[in-house]
Amino acid sequence: MQRVYKKCFITVGTTQFNLLCEYIQTPPILKALKKLGCTEITFQIGNSNCEPKVYEKEGIKLDLYRFKDSLDEDIKNADLIISHAGAGSCLEALNANKPLLVVVNEDLMDNHQMELAEQLQVDGHLYYCTCDTLESTLETVDFNWLSPFPKPNPSAFISYLDDIFKVAVNT
């Protein structure tokens, strides 16, 4: 059975990602999202050059806003997350166990954050594309194939620290 991704959350963090803002609101991308079952888009646009607004297009409700204190709620409510390649945004989406598509901002080509997105795609935790391939990616990829992201485990590190940093025993 085809999974339906009703609520889509898009986030660019604190960056400026004008091209993505523009592309998302074009009919081909909206149609591609609609094919996946999308009826609502919540779009955190950060510092991008477009106006925050709420409106409807191609039968999809769009809600564009700049910033919120916490994106946790929007991430929790989403069925599909589209994010910029920022490590924070990627890891938050993956830790919430949501299907994730990363759109790389090619204006930030020296950005080392690409490294993480690439590796996470190799490991099968997310897909990534550029604005130009966004439409075809949405049409071809199957988010069911993504594997869950393992939880971080700092316990080995913490016990190593306890091992090497000794304090006087409480007498």
């Binding site: 604190t14 920022g86 490590a87 924070g88 091992d163 090497i164 940093f165 000794k166 304090v167 006087a168 409480n170």
Partner: peptide
């Protein structure tokens, strides 16, 4: 050889906070 055994019961510690994602 990176161990330390303090004579005190606690270790005086500095946390260098970076920015953005590094802070989180």
């Amino acid at each position: 050889k990176c161990g330390i055994s303090s004579k005190n019961r606690t270790l005086k510690t500095i946390f260098c906070i970076g920015s953005g994602g590094h802070t989180s």
